[in-house]
Amino acid sequence: MQQTAVVTGAASGLGYELMLLLAKDNYNLVLIDIDEVKLELIQSELKKNHSCNVNIIPVDLSENNSAETVFTAIRNIKIDVLVNCAGFGVYGSFINTNWKQESSMLNLHIITITHLTKLVLQGMIKQNQGKVLNVSSIAAFQPGPMMALYYASKSYLLSFSEAIANELKDTGVSVTVLCPGPTKTCFQEVVSSTSSENKIGFNMACPKAVAAYGYKAMLKGQVVAIPGVLNKILANLPRFLTRNRTTSIVRKIQEKNREKTSNTEVLINEVL
């Protein structure tokens, strides 16, 4: 029997790339995103080129109770893989950023992902098999001035994933958390809208390569997946420097990136 994968944030970025890998491996798909038009186009394209069934659920996962909305739609489907990739971020000083945007981000990164994972895991435990892939970020390993809540929410996702991965040992269910660095997606197009090639090119990764790395890690049951040697070094930076020093370094990087856009506050629609 074909297995079924649920992918959030499937209309673009890493969610899209991970969805393609699952389709190539003949998974039936449930694709979730706020962009209904893109979901419909993807559904049509997949039906032409793959033998998998494709269901779409257009929903804003930053809204309250959205996890319940999704689970109600999939509760009668045997779920073998859950990919939590939907996310966004807000750039700017904490005292100046928009709280409505930030509260939506926190609801998505923390409440919705946690709740949906909890609901889906119940079925995975009963069937003694399943895989969860949560997409966090290299930002999870240190504080991030100028994107304070984004970094903090990604730290939560890393800690949460590692903890439940330990709890689920010997159940047949694995949890993997992917922590990429900067990746060439529409995230970067928003931050540096004046350049199609993007000015923030340092340590920039290909989304296909990042998705493939995370996908392989999920299949192997690896808990933490950090693609790229430099990203592995950056993730371990707090072990060798004081937290104050690490935070200062991140602040300088963020401020340098800030210079590449004229926006006082940047709403990032595709975040890694």
Rank of each mutant, 00 (worst) to 15 (best):
L230V: 09
E270K: 02
R75D: 12
V223D: 03
Q2Y: 04
S174G: 08
S155G: 15
F71E: 13
E259Q: 12
V223N: 02
V250I: 15
L39V: 08
Q188R: 05
D33L: 06
E36G: 05
N128K: 10
E265F: 08
L121K: 04
K184P: 01
T194A: 07
F187A: 11
A217S: 15
D170C: 05
N98R: 05
N166L: 12
K154D: 00
S192L: 01
S51T: 04
S44V: 02
N236H: 12
K256N: 08
V135Y: 00
L234F: 14
K169I: 05
V223Y: 07
N128C: 03
H109Q: 06
I110R: 01
N236T: 10
N257A: 05
T246I: 06
G144A: 12
K78T: 11
V175L: 04
T72D: 15
G89C: 03
G144Y: 12
L21A: 05
Y150M: 08
S93I: 05
M19W: 13
N257G: 04
I32C: 13
L119C: 05
G228F: 08
K100V: 05
G92P: 13
G181S: 12
L106V: 04
A211H: 11
W99D: 06
Q43P: 00
S104D: 15
G181Y: 01
Q222R: 13
S66L: 09
V120D: 15
L133M: 15
L157I: 03
P207H: 04
L41M: 06
A165P: 03
G221Q: 10
K48E: 09
F94Y: 15
V190K: 14
Y213E: 07
Q222G: 02
L39S: 10
N26G: 00
I125D: 11
L133S: 01
S155E: 01
L178T: 00
K199R: 06
K118A: 09
Y91V: 12
L20G: 01
P58V: 00
S159T: 04
S161G: 01
T247L: 06
Q254I: 03
N269Q: 12
G144N: 08
S93E: 14
L230M: 13
